[in-house]
Amino acid sequence: MADQGEQSDTTHFGYKQVPTDEKASHVREVFTSVADKYDVMNDLMSLGIHRIWKRYTIELSGVKRGQRVLDLAGGTGDLASRFARMVGPEGEVVLADINAAMLRNGRERMIDKGIVGNIDYAQVNAECLPFPDNYFDCITIAFGLRNVTDKQKALGSMQRVLKPGGRLLVLEFSKPVTPGLKPIYDLYSFSLLPLMGKIIANDSESYRYLAESIRMHPDQQTLQGMMEEAGLERCDYHNLSGGIVALHRGFKL
């Protein structure tokens, strides 16, 4: 598949096949459409549980005062705002996203919270990060990797800019492992989720894509293998909410 490093003329966009070089623009359109309702929909879709998943990510980040943190696909800044407080004025947090509308919303939220001085903003493609080698102590990407066209290339790019001793945390929807959960989750994803998108964001198709993109994302073991292939070590993962979400972790040694 194209998103695992092989050359191909097409790749998946949800369940559809699109030209590989057009996927990023399709993803950009989805998130431009949902940007203004992103936080409201996150709370509704997960019944607020996404905050617990993100809190767990922060706990496992090991971020300390004075460190540099890159929050990729950072959206409206849920993780970046916490990291900015953790690293203090002598540290640095980069809130990065490929989508200008999401990044703009994130920046406005940070300013509203009074978070300035130690946070920067960058519109970037995760596959080709414009940062020096061995630069960040910690990199996070929450619910963003599944939208990347070439996931293997992106993981390699993250490994490159990570300092020796640093860690990468990938929080992403995954494959349910609790018996009996999958049919309930499928019903919710393909019936209720697009309906909520239509009612709240006036956009059912974008949320149908989100449900499909989750199903096309590598499962826990596959993603762990991809992180190892990218040069990360001591890779592991923690299933959350019965495997609906998994937090993957890898270190650059």
Results as ranks from 00 to 15, higher is better:
4 Q>I: 09
8 S>N: 05
9 D>E: 08
18 V>M: 10
24 A>K: 12
27 V>N: 11
29 E>Q: 13
29 E>K: 14
31 F>Y: 06
40 V>A: 08
41 M>C: 10
43 D>N: 15
44 L>H: 11
56 Y>I: 13
58 I>G: 09
65 R>T: 02
66 G>P: 08
70 L>D: 03
71 D>L: 01
74 G>I: 03
75 G>K: 02
76 T>Y: 08
77 G>T: 03
78 D>Q: 13
79 L>E: 02
80 A>D: 03
80 A>S: 15
91 G>P: 14
97 D>V: 05
99 N>K: 05
102 M>Y: 09
102 M>L: 07
106 G>V: 06
106 G>K: 13
106 G>W: 12
110 M>A: 15
139 I>F: 02
141 I>L: 14
145 L>Q: 11
148 V>P: 13
148 V>G: 12
151 K>Q: 05
151 K>G: 08
153 K>W: 00
154 A>M: 02
156 G>S: 11
156 G>N: 12
157 S>R: 07
170 V>T: 05
171 L>W: 02
173 F>H: 06
175 K>F: 09
183 P>A: 12
189 S>C: 14
190 F>P: 15
194 P>K: 06
196 M>N: 06
199 I>S: 02
204 S>R: 06
207 Y>P: 13
208 R>P: 10
211 A>F: 03
213 S>G: 15
218 P>F: 02
219 D>A: 04
220 Q>M: 11
223 L>S: 05
226 M>T: 05
237 Y>V: 04
239 N>K: 08
241 S>K: 07
244 I>C: 09
247 L>F: 03
249 R>D: 00
